[in-house]
C-alpha cells in the first residue's frame, strides 16, 4: 500500500459526521492515510460548530451528573496499552447508571480522542477503533461476551500487532491482525458474504505439522481466532460443512503468512 491517498480516504467527511456503519468506520480507521485521519479530525471540529443551539437541561441533570462523577473512577491515559487483557474487570460495575454508560461502546469522538494519544498510524488507528469493532452487532454476537471483545481490543492495541490485508475473491476485504507476543490473532472482514446454506467458515492455523482448527464462525465483521498462534504459522479460512471439520476439506478463501 502506498502512502498516497487511498480509496478509503474519501470517507473522511462521513467519518467526521459519524455517518459510517461500524465496519466502514473500522476500515477507515485502519486504512486511511495520515492526511485523511487529520482531515477527519478537522472536519469533526467543523461539524461541532454546527451544534450551536443551546437548550437548558433540567437542573436535576446537573445534580445527577455531579453525583455520578463523584463515584466514578477515571481511566488512565492509555488503557488500550495498560489494561490487562480479557479478564480485566471493568471497574464501573458498582454503579448502575455508570455501568450502562460504561458498557456502551465509546463513540467516535472517543475513538478520535484515543487516536490522538497513539503515535503509530495504522495500528494506532485500529487500536482506537477496537471500541468500534466491539460496537458492531455482528461482532458482539460472533465473539459473544465482553471478555472476548476486550481480548480483541487488546490484540489490535498490542504494541507488536501486525496486519495484512487480503482481497477476497468476491471483492470483500479481510484484514488479518496478529500479535506474536500475545500469540493471538483476529480477522476483520469488510463485505464477507454469509456462508452457503449448510456450511460455515472455519479458521485454521497452518504450520509444518498441518492445519489446526482455530474455530468456526458465520459472516461477521470480526473473528478472534481460538487458540494460540505459534511462531511462523499461517492463518487460513475455508468454507466447511456446518459444525466445522477436523481438517480443511476445501480450498482456502484466504491464507496469510504471519
Amino acid at each position: 500500500m502506498t502512502d498516497e491517498s487511498r480509496p478509503v480516504d474519501e470517507l473522511a467527511a462521513a467519518y467526521a459526521l459519524d455517518a459510517l456503519e461500524p465496519a466502514e468506520r473500522a476500515r477507515f480507521e485502519a486504512e486511511a492515510s495520515p492526511e485523511a485521519l487529520e482531515e477527519a479530525r478537522q472536519l469533526a471540529d467543523t461539524a461541532a460548530l454546527l451544534a450551536a443551539d443551546e437548550v437548558a437541561p433540567p437542573p436535576s441533570l446537573r445534580a445527577s451528573v455531579l453525583d455520578a462523577i463523584a463515584r466514578e473512577p477515571q481511566r488512565d491515559e492509555a488503557p488500550p496499552l495498560t489494561r490487562p487483557t480479557a479478564s480485566a474487570p471493568h471497574r464501573d460495575t458498582d454503579e448502575p447508571r455508570a455501568h450502562v454508560a460504561a458498557a456502551r461502546p465509546p463513540g467516535a469522538a472517543e475513538r478520535r480522542a484515543r487516536a490522538r494519544w497513539r503515535p503509530a498510524r495504522v495500528l494506532g488507528a485500529i487500536a482506537a477503533g477496537s471500541a468500534l469493532l466491539l460496537g458492531g452487532v455482528a461482532i458482539g454476537s460472533q465473539l459473544g461476551g465482553e471478555s472476548q471483545q476486550e481480548a480483541l481490543g487488546a490484540l489490535v492495541a498490542a504494541p507488536d500487532a501486525e496486519r495484512s490485508e487480503v482481497e477476497l475473491a468476491d471483492g470483500g476485504i479481510a484484514t488479518v491482525v496478529w500479535s506474536p507476543a500475545r500469540e493471538q490473532s483476529a480477522i476483520l472482514f469488510d463485505g464477507l458474504p454469509p456462508a452457503p446454506e449448510g456450511a460455515t467458515y472455519q479458521a485454521w492455523f497452518i504450520d509444518g505439522s498441518g492445519a489446526r482448527s482455530a474455530g468456526v464462525f458465520e459472516a461477521s465483521s470480526a473473528f478472534l481466532l481460538e487458540g494460540e498462534l505459534s511462531a511462523g504459522a499461517a492463518i487460513g479460512v475455508t468454507v466447511e460443512p456446518a459444525g466445522g471439520s477436523e481438517a480443511p476439506t476445501s480450498d482456502p478463501i484466504l491464507v496469510v503468512e504471519t
Binding site: P57, V65, E72, P73, A98, A101, E110, W117
Partner: peptide, 16 residues
C-alpha cells in the same frame, strides 16, 4: 447527556 458527561469525566485524561 448524562452518559456524555460521565464519559467525559472518565476520559478527561485523553483530552489534549
Amino acid at each position: 447527556a448524562q452518559e456524555v458527561y460521565l464519559e467525559a469525566w472518565r476520559q478527561a485524561k485523553r483530552f489534549d
